[in-house]
């Protein structure tokens, strides 16, 4: 993971630093893993600011696991910074953001990426497990998945990716792939 991060950061340096972009991709579901939710009142504390985010809908909180899931309203952009700020203002710690997003496979500076159908925004894609041969051209580390992504890219196939968000300054937000599948338009 450190090697991957280092490689991505090195790429960012080569490209020059730009502001972390807003993730406008077609995200259909957001899951926030939050540390410090130790009492029932905490659930209200955390849901209140999240419900103020207009793009989110239909909340479901698992108190035991400290996880808040929310559907994203159709065609509504999301801003990852809003999640971080909302959780920060509650006094809890945001451990991870997990997204489910739909788009087509494309390339961003040689990296596989998920591109939104409507907005053109991208999530870089990489995979946590597998043999890492991380270069700007190989961030997946799983040959079979790499080939599948190339095939989907060539065919313009619509795919759904679930994964944990990784953000690095100067790069589009990245998704550590947990599940990826073809979906019908």
């Amino acid at each position: 993971m450190k090697r991957r991060t280092a490689a991505i950061l090195a790429l960012a340096t080569l490209l020059g630093e730009v502001a972390v972009p807003v993730a406008w991709a077609e995200v259909t579901e957001v899951e926030l893993a939050i540390d410090g939710i130790s009492c029932p009142f905490c659930v209200f504390n955390i849901e209140k600011p999240l419900k103020a985010i207009s793009a989110l809908d239909s909340f479901r909180t698992n108190y035991k696991k400290g996880v808040v899931r929310a559907k994203v309203k159709p065609d509504q952009p999301i801003d990852l910074a809003q999640f971080r700020q909302a959780v920060s203002e509650t006094g809890f710690t945001l451990r991870a953001i997990r997204l489910r997003a739909i788009g087509t496979i494309t390339r961003w500076e040689g990296h596989p990426a998920l591109e939104s159908r409507r907005t053109g925004q991208r999530f870089l894609l990489f995979k946590e497990e597998g043999e890492a041969s991380l270069t700007p051209q190989h961030t997946i580390g799983n040959p079979a998945l790499e080939r599948q992504l190339v095939a989907w890219e060539s065919a313009g196939t619509l795919v759904q990716v679930s994964g944990i968000v990784h953000e690095h300054k100067g790069l589009p937000p990245a998704l550590a792939i947990e599940a990826v599948q073809e979906v019908k338009p």
Binding site: D35, G36, S38, K65, G91, F92, T93
Partner: peptide, 12 residues
């Protein structure tokens, strides 16, 4: 005023 906070899953 809170001076210190350490959060963990389900615990603070």
């Amino acid at each position: 005023q809170r001076l210190f906070r350490k959060d963990a899953p389900g615990m603070t």
